[in-house]
């Protein structure tokens, strides 16, 4: 599988990640090189093989629904880049 420049730009948009010009130049070759190594999986017959999401057999772990102390509000907000009182502050989502 080969990735071209336009695809790299598209994937970056999906991931909401800005790339430098140098990365936009480098990534198509580097990522294609990595993706080529994935082609070996086509050789493996996986008919009727179920997927493994994680390796121990725990599923749908539930806890009792108890009220317990959690982080203090000030602690939770302490690392906020920008805040307004007890809220995280972000830039406008909708156009004015």
């Amino acid at each position: 599988m080969k990735l071209i420049r336009e695809e790299v730009i598209h994937i970056a948009q999906l991931a909401r990640i800005g790339l430098t010009e140098a990365e936009i130049d480098e990534f198509p070759r580097q990522l294609s090189n990595i993706l080529e190594n994935f082609d070996v999986l086509d050789q493996v017959d996986t008919t009727d093989v179920p997927p493994t999401t994680q390796s121990n057999s725990l599923h749908t772990v539930i806890k009792d629904d108890l009220v317990k102390p959690s982080l203090e509000r000030e602690d939770a907000l302490a690392n906020a880049p920008s805040r307004d009182g007890e809220f995280f502050k972000i830039r406008p989502v909708l156009d004015k």
């Binding site: 994937i11 990522l31 994935f38 093989v49």
Partner: peptide, 25 residues
Amino acid sequence: MLGTYALSAGYYDAYYLKAQKVRTI
């Protein structure tokens, strides 16, 4: 970038799901 690509529409089965099945093997 790799992960986003492997999980994106059209490639999920070929990459992510396939890898999870080989993981079982």
